[in-house]
Simulated scan of single mutants.
Amino acid sequence: MNKFVEFRNKAVENISKVIVGKEQVIEHIIVSFIVSGHVLLEDVPGLGKTKMCKALSKTMNCSFKRIQFTPDLLPSDLTGIYFYNQGTKEFEFRKGPILSEVVLADEINRATPRTQSALLECMEEGQVTVEGNTIELGKPFFVIATENPVEQFGTFPLPEAQLDRFFMRLSIGYPEYDEEIKIINRFIEEEPLEKLNSVISLEEISYVQKNYNKIYISEDIKKYIVDLVRATRNHKEIELGCSPRATLNLMKGCQGLAAIKGRDYVILEDIKDLAVPIMAHRVIVKNDMSNSRNKSEKVIENILNTVETPIERS
């Protein structure tokens, strides 16, 4: 367990040199990275989404690409193309930005559904298909997609089936007063991101990604996870509940969180910590045309407060 705790501490400490006061968000992103999930960051501009992603890639010593999604972006702009090299008289493959280890899909809801689908296929299958040729993506492969929840003009909102592909939906949020003073002091003379060093090796990444699933989950905890997910399918305020993918993701997330906390077993607090970011974007709330984050999160919190825990049942 020491390797997981060390992994978490080094990552949080290093990223926190750039991002001020958002330790829980950083921790949730690290859990997603460990279990090979992907993150949707939903926030207004200027809160540090891009810096968060760059700081993560530098910390993990991973290759990084940022893709600005626009309505005229094509799937081939992501995956790459085959072009004819007149010098060698052969077709050669020119890699697209998606063939990187850490990818920032900036303002994903500004691209057309066709381009969104190309990205989400890479996330789900771990491969790209270009002109009939399948190219495996390397490991690690981690996507952080962003979208502005306020501005809807000229956007193509992600449908529920595509939202379900994201492991977590997170929000960085505005800083506290003291945190904003620290941001001014930290950035007044230099850009901390430029001096950020890599502190985690590929071997460490491979170890945590291969071994997090050995964390023990008791039968009572398994039943509680299933009870929470099934409660979304019968809730009076929910039109469409969570699928079994949510069940599996909540299980994996709890294993990853328990590991970086130094435990070889999952506890109730792990579930309560991750239920909202893993489940809220997977439900459709009744009479909510905008499918706003706040309403869906409140419904999941209500379910957490009403579903009996194993302790209560016993």
Rank of each mutant, 00 (worst) to 15 (best):
K3T: 12
F4E: 12
E6H: 02
V12W: 02
I26Q: 09
I26W: 07
F33T: 06
I34Y: 01
H38W: 12
L47K: 02
S57V: 05
S63Y: 03
I67C: 11
P71H: 08
E92F: 00
E92D: 12
G96Y: 05
P97K: 09
I98Y: 05
E101R: 04
V103C: 08
I108D: 06
T112H: 14
T112W: 00
T112K: 12
T115S: 09
T115G: 10
T115R: 06
Q116V: 08
S117K: 02
E121D: 10
M123C: 12
T129I: 09
N133K: 14
I135K: 13
F141Y: 09
I144T: 01
T146C: 12
N148H: 06
V150Q: 08
F153V: 14
P159R: 08
A161Q: 06
L163S: 07
E176D: 12
I181W: 00
I184V: 15
I184L: 15
F187E: 13
E190S: 15
P192N: 13
K195W: 01
S198N: 12
S198T: 06
I200L: 15
S201T: 15
E203N: 12
V208G: 09
E219G: 04
D220C: 01
D220G: 01
Y224T: 05
I225T: 03
V229A: 14
R230I: 04
A231F: 02
T232H: 05
R233L: 09
K236T: 11
K236C: 00
E237V: 02
L240F: 13
S243T: 14
P244L: 06
P244T: 08
A246Q: 05
G256D: 07
R263W: 06
D264Y: 11
I271M: 03
L274T: 04
V276D: 06
V276M: 03
M289P: 01
M289G: 00
V299K: 01
I300T: 06
L304M: 11
V307T: 07
S314W: 06
